[in-house]
């Protein structure tokens, strides 16, 4: 069963000509329709995250300022990020959608969650909007879960590093953040030597990929470098920052994945869930509408056992050397951090 929240009423968050646009969500919903799930699709009711739920990961001053900014009509928050009059309410619902999906999964104890919302969230910092993101949707859900005593694995396969999520959980030993991303690229963070704060060493795993990298290299990095850390961490929940802008057709970056690669990534992520009903995907980036539709369908289809046709997984791109140097850099950074902490 696929449990979703989102997909409607997001038209108020739009800036003409901006790539983060309502048509993205329409493409996502078509990708879900392509799976023809019938009774296996459950849409949970919209819900606006409360002030206290947002305040777990965002500063109160920022929440006040963002709300006021929108109510005054909005505008540009930085070179990339906009907000409209409606954005505050839509961002609250985007954050609440994750909470609603996680709650439904907890009640049912089965199914796969998909949070199909915009604006996206993984660049949003505690005190700042950034990179098209206003509120950090996946962080709000992860913080809810850790407040219940859970140990949360966040896998972020968006082509951009999720600097906001990493920063929010930098010193939280109950959240393991694993990111694959093109590097160098916006936002400029996500180096392999970023391994977590002194209170949570080895709970951040960054796997930078060179331009042109294909799915085989990404899987190699995840299996060789991230998997042992995840096994040691023993997550009780798996949340995914599912951006689809690493697809070869996406105009925002230069990785070379196919929809079939996203299917494999989804299978990899879900393999770490200790029991059914513990996996939820959160929409992040993805700006080529056809690739977005196909990649959503492929990744969710892989988790639901669908036989939907996908593009073949890719291989042969650059980056095998990067996998090794990343692993070496991580180990060196961990040694230095351990020496510093003692």
């Amino acid at each position: 069963m696929l449990i979703i929240n989102g997909g409607t009423d997001d038209a108020g968050h739009e800036d003409p000509g901006h790539p983060e646009r309502p048509e993205r969500l329409a493409a996502v919903m078509k990708g879900i329709e392509d799976l023809q799930l019938g009774d296996d699709l459950l849409a949970v009711a919209p819900y606006a995250a409360s002030r206290s739920e947002l305040a777990r990961v965002h500063e109160s001053t920022y929440l006040d300022q963002l709300g006021a900014f929108c109510f005054e009509g909005g505008g540009d928050l930085d070179e990339d990020t906009y907000a409209t009059y409606d954005s505050w309410a839509l961002a609250q619902h985007a954050a609440g959608a994750g909470l609603a999906v996680v709650k439904e999964l907890r009640i049912r104890g089965e199914g796969t969650g998909f949070v199909a919302v915009r604006p996206p969230g993984h660049h949003a910092l505690r005190d700042r909007a950034m990179g098209f993101c206003l509120l950090n949707n996946i962080a709000v859900a992860a913080a809810e879960l850790t407040s219940l005593g859970e140990r949360v694995l966040i896998i972020d396969w968006d082509v951009h590093h999720g600097n906001g999520t990493q920063a929010i959980f930098w010193n939280d030993p109950n959240v393991l953040y694993v990111s694959t991303h093109q590097w160098p690229l916006f936002p400029g963070s996500g180096a392999p030597y970023e391994v977590g704060g002194l209170e949570a060493l080895d709970t951040t795993v960054n796997l930078p990929m060179p331009p042109g990298a294909t799915g085989d290299v990404m899987r190699q990095a995840l299996e060789e470098t991230a998997a042992p850390v995840i096994d040691h961490f023993k997550p009780t929940w798996v949340l995914v920052s599912a951006g689809f802008d690493a697809h070869r057709a996406d105009p925002m970056a230069d990785l070379a994945l196919s929809s079939g690669d996203f299917a494999r990534l989804a299978t990899f992520a879900a393999s770490f869930a200790p029991r059914p009903g513990r996996v939820a995907l959160f929409l992040e980036g993805g700006y080529d509408l056809a690739a977005l539709r196909a990649s959503v369908s492929a990744s969710l289809g892989a988790l639901l056992g669908s036989s939907a046709t996908t593009e073949d997984p890719t291989n042969g791109g650059p980056g095998a050397d990067t996998v090794r140097t990343t692993r070496d850099a991580r180990q060196a950074a961990l040694r230095i951090a351990h020496d510093t902490s003692h």
Partner: peptide
């Protein structure tokens, strides 16, 4: 010339 938002780049 660095990737990032203006604030993060200046802090770096």
């Amino acid at each position: 010339i660095e990737d990032g938002d203006a604030c993060s780049v200046m802090l770096r």
